[in-house]
Design a binder for these strands. Sequence first.
DNA 1: TTGTAAGCGTTATCAT
DNA 2: ATGATAACGCTTACAA
Lengths: 330, 330
Amino acid sequence: MATILDVAKRAGLSKTTVSRVINNQAYVSEEKRALVLQAMKELDYHPNPAARRLRGQQTMTIGVLVSAIVHPLFACLVDAIERTAYENGYKVMICQSQGNKEKELLFLNLLKTKQVDGIIITSLENDWKNIEPFVTHGPIVLCNEYINESSVPVIKLDQFNGTYLGIQHLIKRGHRKIGYCTGGLFAEYGKDKDRNQGYQKAMAEAGVSINPAWIFVDRHTSEDGKKLLAHMLDMDDRPTAIFTGSDEIAAGMLVQAREQGVRIPEDLAVMGFDDQPIAEWTSPPLTTVRQPAEEMGQKSTQMIIDALHQNAAGMEQLELPIEIIIRQST
Amino acid sequence: MATILDVAKRAGLSKTTVSRVINNQAYVSEEKRALVLQAMKELDYHPNPAARRLRGQQTMTIGVLVSAIVHPLFACLVDAIERTAYENGYKVMICQSQGNKEKELLFLNLLKTKQVDGIIITSLENDWKNIEPFVTHGPIVLCNEYINESSVPVIKLDQFNGTYLGIQHLIKRGHRKIGYCTGGLFAEYGKDKDRNQGYQKAMAEAGVSINPAWIFVDRHTSEDGKKLLAHMLDMDDRPTAIFTGSDEIAAGMLVQAREQGVRIPEDLAVMGFDDQPIAEWTSPPLTTVRQPAEEMGQKSTQMIIDALHQNAAGMEQLELPIEIIIRQST
DNA sequence: TTGTAAGCGTTATCAT
DNA sequence: ATGATAACGCTTACAA
């Protein structure tokens, strides 16, 4: 690989002048600039990024932490992030935490060692107190995931309202016996908390009491959905509608329902969450809560790039609207 | 950030000794080693990767080129690649070409500028002659995608056989009027060619002639699938079975079929390709050709790492077996 | 407007 | 076994 010195020699100038051209700074005569450009082309010269980096420049790389990229929502997020990043000249490094706290921390270390300029976290494994120290090394943006008392920019959805509207929809359809299935643990913080509160509020407002036996936690996959439906059929007193935490779970329930001859929505109304493409392909198509993943990804990338440019991360909280998509499963 | 010099001072030794410890080389007394380790810990020291890189070390980064990560097959590939890479201490940089030749070339430049050690290409936009020059800068592995006359390692599937078996399955089911829908252009090279030949061979062997009006090219999305089904219903003489290029297209066809009251598989048998998770969730579940994406991703990563270690890329061609999964859409 | 020279944080070479 | 010193390729004061 040609170096800046090679170019300088070929152009009959100094490294400095070449550097000026590369970084298009002022104070280079058009004549010399042309000479340098010419030499660069002839030698197929590309500045060595490691050397520039060593001089304290940016890496032009953004790290993205997801739990699992095969999950369509995360794929969509990564898609939007990658596109926005490249449009702005940034590259994207990815890491799947997959529930592994250490892998997450290892990835965050890239910030410390300046291998990425900033990190977008879409999924959080460690306690925030273990993450927070990293913000001194570069901007961190929370996207989709959030802890309620954070000091970094957060792009999130109105999970509370999404769930609230969803449950309300079921109530409007005449349901009183409404089950609730969540990927979390009916927890006291973050996304999960907000969804739970939306559920509780909608139920309370309608004067419907919550049956604890109809709350199902820690369900994630379509397999979980299948099992859940089978389990519900075994119950003496069972809900007439169920609000799930993801389209995948809902899809699993539909499959099992067909298997066991349960009619959807007549015997059981099923609501998904996410509005993944599959929501249109199931039978019946899923009523679900739409998360504008694309916009979230875009916005968080924009936000991290802004932080990089201003050289100071703000701490805006951006909450994107969420809507329910009514199809035929409810 | 602490530097190697800080560590050296604190330990009362020289940079050299510290460097020896970092790279655990011989000729360091246990005593001094402990001292250095101690100092490193106290200062929370991490070697500066840019500096190491400048000294000609590896970046420990693998680039992955995909066309679109939202496509489940690519998501699955990236998933496997990322996991395998991290297990071996490598990081993963991604780029979605999205049909954009220039973006693809831009990404390949990372190899030239030593920002990645090697690149896995899962999707190819440019002519091979434009890609080939890059191999001098580091290993390139073709995964899933292939050109027939290449000089780099290739991990591919037996697309020919997959299609051949699929068509054969339809024939066994009694179909003679078999349509063929492909994402490509019924082309003369690569994956597409192999699939086409599988189709032709199976048809020929069964003594069934191919109706050119039943060959549909350049179809990709579920939307395309919907339109295709509607279009087929308009045909005077139409196939009784259709072999598609992806589960998404097939899913779209099923949706439209329900809409228009076409019974699957009685009125029309539909075959997918990929065996994505959705294949189980459609109604009816899809008969499809299973691609072992996970294994492909793993193998290509392994191969590129091997090439990196041996410092010489072999040019093995690895062809993974493919199988058909029979469900209820045929 | 152009050039000289001093770093940036490592590792490799050669002494000691 | 340990250390001084010269690269690696680039940017940036500072000079001219």
